[in-house]
Design a binder for these strands. Structure first.
Lengths: 245, 245
DNA sequence: TGTACATCAGTGAACGCGCGTTCACTGATGTAC
DNA sequence: TGTACATCAGTGAACGCGCGTTCACTGATGTAC
């Protein structure tokens, strides 16, 4: 729409999209490790060397896929949270986000494998992927933070050393929350905060473990209905966090 | 030791072991998807076609690795459980098993990727792998079952539909427990049993989610000490199951 | 508005490499008499 | 115990295939005057 969009720039945009879409389809059929520039070129009916006009290497294409997929998933989580009208209903927001995350992953198993499966050998994700990667867990942390500020507390923690032990293990998470002012108005030095953060990370872990198990075939002998199962798990995680409905 | 062990049979055993060991080392460096018969042949200083005297195809080698690795992990879990002298101390048994499972996976990241990472495209695990695959979760279920029989109960479940809703989602797990008589002496039709099973599957999911996050690099920004973190998580999972120390 | 030049997308051939699998073969090991 | 034959491990060449990346090229698109 901008006047500077020449025919060339427009074509470039279209073809770039086609390449990315074909590559994402290939993720699902072949897996991230076996993603091949030549196969993608074939899919978009180009000679393999032409793809190099759009991506300087296979690794660059992988990086683009990583960023785009993380962003899409993060966007899905953010949108699901934002769609809950009653911002004070942490339980509803929690359930909505967990459902949205699972739904996106189930709809995009190839991308899920790229993001959360076995790392591609020989490929190291560059720093540009960190910010998109962190969007989902940020949404979760914000919901718990809002609920915490409103008085919600996770279930009591067992074990030696007082209320859950020293916060050292989750110190990086606390630093992240402080840096991004996710729990504004809450004193992060409080022991109960560390416990809420522990439970948030646990819940995040459970969510992605659940999706991994579902998509990678480890649930077939134990769970009958994966969609209903996610709901059951989400409600229990919310209860453990003290944000149950 | 048996008289029938000819020099040939002995050599065969040795070389088979060498091939398997080299293949497992390759899993860690190259990943399961990129596991190559030729690379393994090079490692054991054989011509590539010679490997076919030991494994009829790459898929057969993958299957052997899958079975061996599942068995080793299952064995580690069983041994850790058996090593706890006080069989009535479910909390101690739980912690010991979770530590052992994580320790094995951290020591064998390549094998972990094969077992629980992105499935290898084009490869479908045969039925022979099911029995070994199920050993770990069987150990977990047995500990919870023993504790349940002794009176332990998971935390109360929230949500609509009474105490946790219908057991339909975890029906396959209940059938498995019945088939293998894991919870002998317990009436599996009880609603509280379904809840204990739900919490067991959740805990199993969290455990493997945690290990995935650790090994696949998703924990760097949130957790400082993975080993201590496993302990903290294990204690909370045990508490949720009502088998806390 | 028209022309000259610069930019860029896409081509096709080539590089050196690795892959799984088959096959006819040699020579060592095992077994039946 | 000795010989004849069968079994089997390992060789080396070959099959047909796919890979990432480079390079000189053609022809279309864009821009400066």
């Amino acid at each position: 729409m901008s006047p500077a969009r020449t025919a060339r720039a427009l074509a470039r945009e279209t073809i770039t999209r086609e390449i990315l879409d074909s590559a994402r389809a290939r993720l699902t059929t072949d897996g991230a490790a076996a993603l091949s520039l030549r196969a993608v070129a074939r899919d978009v009916e180009m000679v393999s060397s032409a793809v190099y006009r759009y991506f300087p290497s296979r690794d660059a294409l992988l990086t683009a896929l990583l960023i785009e997929s993380y962003d899409e998933l993060g966007e899905a989580a953010e949108a699901a949270d934002a769609a809950v009208a009653d911002r004070a209903d942490a339980g509803a927001r929690w359930l909505a986000v967990l459902r949205a995350v699972r739904a996106w992953c189930v709809a995009h198993p190839g991308e899920f494998g790229l993001l959360y499966g076995t790392p591609v050998p020989g490929y190291a994700a560059p720093r540009d992927t960190v910010v998109p990667a962190v969007r989902v867990v940020t949404v979760l942390a914000r919901i718990v933070g809002d609920a915490y500020a409103a008085g919600a507390r996770p279930v009591a923690a067992p074990g030696p050393g007082g209320p859950g032990g020293a916060p050292v293990t989750v110190a990086p998470a606390l630093a992240f929350i402080a840096d991004h002012e996710l729990w504004s108005g809450t004193d992060l030095a409080d022991d109960a905060v560390a416990e809420a953060v522990r439970r948030t990370i646990m819940a995040w872990t459970t969510l992605f473990g659940l999706i991994s198990f579902e998509l990678f075939g480890h649930q077939v002998g134990s769970v009958a209905d994966p969609e209903a199962w996610l709901d059951e798990v989400a409600r229990r995680l919310a209860a453990d966090l003290g944000i149950g409905a």
